[in-house]
Nucleic acid binder design. Sequence first.
DNA 1: CTGTTAGCGCTTTCAG
DNA 2: CTGAAAGCGCTAACAG
Lengths: 347, 347
Amino acid sequence: MSEKRRLTLKDIAKELGISVSTASRALNSYPGIAEETINMVKDFAEKHNYVPNTMAVNFRKNKTMTLGIIVPELIHYFFSSVISGAIQTAKKHGYSVFVSQTDEKVSDEVIACRTLLSSGVDGLLISISNETIEGEHIREFLDEGKPVVQFDKVSDYLETPKVIVDDFQGAFKAVEHLIKQGYKNIAHIGGWADVKNSMERKRGYEAALDRYGFKIDKSYLFQCKDISEQEGYDFTKKLMELPNPPDAIFCITDIVAMGAIKYLKKKKMAIPEHIGIVGFSNWQLAGLVSPGLSSVDQHAYQMGVKAVEIMINILKGNAVCKDEAHLLETELVVRESSSLGKYSNLE
Amino acid sequence: MSEKRRLTLKDIAKELGISVSTASRALNSYPGIAEETINMVKDFAEKHNYVPNTMAVNFRKNKTMTLGIIVPELIHYFFSSVISGAIQTAKKHGYSVFVSQTDEKVSDEVIACRTLLSSGVDGLLISISNETIEGEHIREFLDEGKPVVQFDKVSDYLETPKVIVDDFQGAFKAVEHLIKQGYKNIAHIGGWADVKNSMERKRGYEAALDRYGFKIDKSYLFQCKDISEQEGYDFTKKLMELPNPPDAIFCITDIVAMGAIKYLKKKKMAIPEHIGIVGFSNWQLAGLVSPGLSSVDQHAYQMGVKAVEIMINILKGNAVCKDEAHLLETELVVRESSSLGKYSNLE
DNA sequence: CTGTTAGCGCTTTCAG
DNA sequence: CTGAAAGCGCTAACAG
């Protein structure tokens, strides 16, 4: 821990017999500086591996070249993928990323916002918690002139760019696929009625049925409360005990689908022959379990990329921080759990 | 985006008719400041919601109250759990965390280190990439007097505190459990011979067999190259085609175990009756698949907590950044895949 | 207990 | 093309 003092601009200037400002300008390749001087300074800096004091630069420029990102739960595959894309993209533009998580609690979200704000990030990327409604704490960024980009779970009260999954389209594709596979009675285990993503998926489900001339059977609809495997199990049980049980289930998310599959296996119902299953999210596990779980991929990594690109554009002044939605395409990944006969696209 | 100027200490001082330094001292509750003054300043600050300019403070104090954390892959459940624990703990002590990833490439690791160093983090938490050997780029932190704490995948060339999983113990427990369940011929699908974690797990496997008087059969040992499901599948096939196939397999990691299970299911071999399986890592999926996969939990979250605690202690001056290993206990989570008869601890 | 002063390292006017 | 000088907001001697 030998605290040896770092080389400063002043040192370079003195050593080279020039002024501090010239040294600064040379290093940053300002226009109107002799080629010669630039080389001299850069060479010297290189040789003595000068590294500018970022804190001083930040302070002076009132910019930190850092972004904050807040997610409900870092350990969710979806969010860690988004973050991964965000970090990668930010890095490409010279930005670093602070990561915070809220555990779906608005109180933690408020703290995270304050911390990030006071630590001087240049912009905020956020996916709000389930508890967040208006997001006044997020507005503080906008009040300070710092751009905010929302992604995945967004608040419509905040006028910011939003990057969201086209849940409607994803659900539509999933159900359309089931229909084309020949399934006739398609149920849906959905999520909270007041969460936008859930609503959109339900709408997509209904639209697909409608489009292909099926009518919607209320008894085929269930709503999860905490989107758990257990609920998938329980609701599937209820579905299968109906007088006219479904022959396919579109689940709000893969974990619910896993619960459904668990029940069906226990009851020795063949998947996909007796009953087809499609999930949503395309977790890693979807490809690992057997039968492989068909699922709607949300391109999470791409979402992180997109959100940061929007942010950078605003920061660079090429765009303005205004209320606009960017819909991300989904992709249906078909695996065994919904592949009937000849339509199968498996190895 | 109304760039309204923030309140500064100078503003407060002028408004209150005191000096800037008094204002500063009052806000930071220095000893030797009139109670009265403190209250006056704090009240004023509160009312006009003064928030100190962190960049200026950082610059002045030459501290940022931030930590950097570098992992090979953010999307791995293990690492995102570690990070989660690290962020939580850092927050508790007033620190924020920058997250970087290397994709297992030493070149990316070098860049990440430089970026973090120049962005002025107070300390570095790192799990090195597979390619990293000596880690000269990491040493740069130490050279600047900034503490480094390594975790999970560590380099012995660097003299820093290390938080690691007790792989030996974990493997030992796993194999001991299989033995106690009554399995007699236990195989091991392991990892690279030159990766420490893999070696330790293999040692644990061998030690357990030895301890219970089984002898080690070389034909029961396989080494994965990229630790994939496919390899689990392939090696299990080879194992089962032996003249004397094993009746249990201890897999280096859950994903390999999933491959093993896939093969066994395809061959209609009953798990755990015909063959028992134990994995390592205890991924989320281990509890979701059927049969549930027995697995060694590494307490990843706890690892993040521990690493940050060590870091904070060094930063506070309560400890010094020296070479010492902190072994984290593992925990065997028993599920269906290895639960024979009466020993079963399942619902 | 409080004010004065200096300065952290850098960028950026304003003059040459 | 380059130098001198000011100053970002805050803290920490040093004096009262």
